[in-house]
Structures are given as structure tokens and as C-alpha cells.
């Protein structure tokens, strides 16, 4: 775990690990790197991780952050887990749509809807 303050909040309910961001803007390379490391540490301890990333209150997201989400998605798959995203603001959803990453990620409007689809 990095020595600096955590950049995420974690809520566990049953087998589902729900992650929230502490920052409204997820742009800074160093922060993004830290977020990835923190999430990696969470899921590596699990057998078939059920990870839900909740984007509530996130206003800006850079392509560097998208890249890290792909890395996390690959990691989850390698652990035979599932990754879902929820509560993505319309403007940020457009970024996923333009980059066609909405085809890769399992995106839901709300956290409840996402939770209901874990197998």
C-alpha cells in the first residue's frame, strides 16, 4: 500500500467489493497509478473477485484512467472474477462510448442494478 492517503473507499457486502473514488477528477498519473495498486491489492486476495466500481461524484476521467480500468479488467478476468461499473455521469459515459469501451465494460446505471447481475 502506498504511504500516501488512500484514493478509494471500499464497501464490502457479501462477496461484492464496491469501490468509490475520493477524487472528482481522475486525471493525475500518480493518483491513477495509486488507485490501480489499491484495487489490485483488494482483488488479489480474492478467489473469484466480484468487483463493482462506482463512479458517483466523478466529474472528469482521462484516457490514462481508461487505460488503467482496462488493466484492472484484465486482472479480474485472470482471477476468474467479474467487474462491473455503475453510476457513470452522462458526460463520462460519452467518453466510454466514443472510445467504444462501453463494449468491453459491463456498465449499469445504478449500484443496485449492477449488484443484481453478479453471478
Amino acid at each position: 500500500m502506498p504511504t500516501s492517503e488512500s484514493r478509494i473507499k471500499v464497501k464490502r457486502e457479501g462477496a461484492i467489493i464496491e469501490v468509490f473514488f475520493r477524487d472528482r477528477n481522475i486525471l493525475d498519473e500518480a493518483n491513477i497509478q495509486q488507485i490501480e495498486e489499491e484495487i489490485r491489492a483488494l482483488i488479489e486476495a480474492e478467489k473469484n473477485p466480484k468487483l463493482l466500481i462506482n463512479f458517483t461524484d466523478v466529474d472528469h476521467l482521462s484516457s490514462a484512467a481508461l487505460g488503467k480500468l482496462i488493466t484492472i479488467n484484465n486482472k479480474v478476468r485472470s482471477l476468474s472474477g467479474q467487474l462491473k461499473l455503475s453510476n457513470i455521469d452522462k458526460q463520462i459515459y460519452d467518453v466510454f462510448r466514443i472510445t467504444k469501451l462501453n463494449k468491453i465494460f459491463d456498465i449499469h446505471d445504478t449500484s443496485e442494478q449492477a449488484r443484481a447481475t453478479f453471478k
Binding site: S62, L66, G67, N73, N74, T99, K100, L101, K103, I104
Partner: peptide, 8 residues
Amino acid sequence: LELPSGRG
């Protein structure tokens, strides 16, 4: 699509 960079 799954390359981690190149979207900027």
C-alpha cells in the same frame, strides 16, 4: 480495444 493506451 483492450490496449491500455492510445486513446488521447
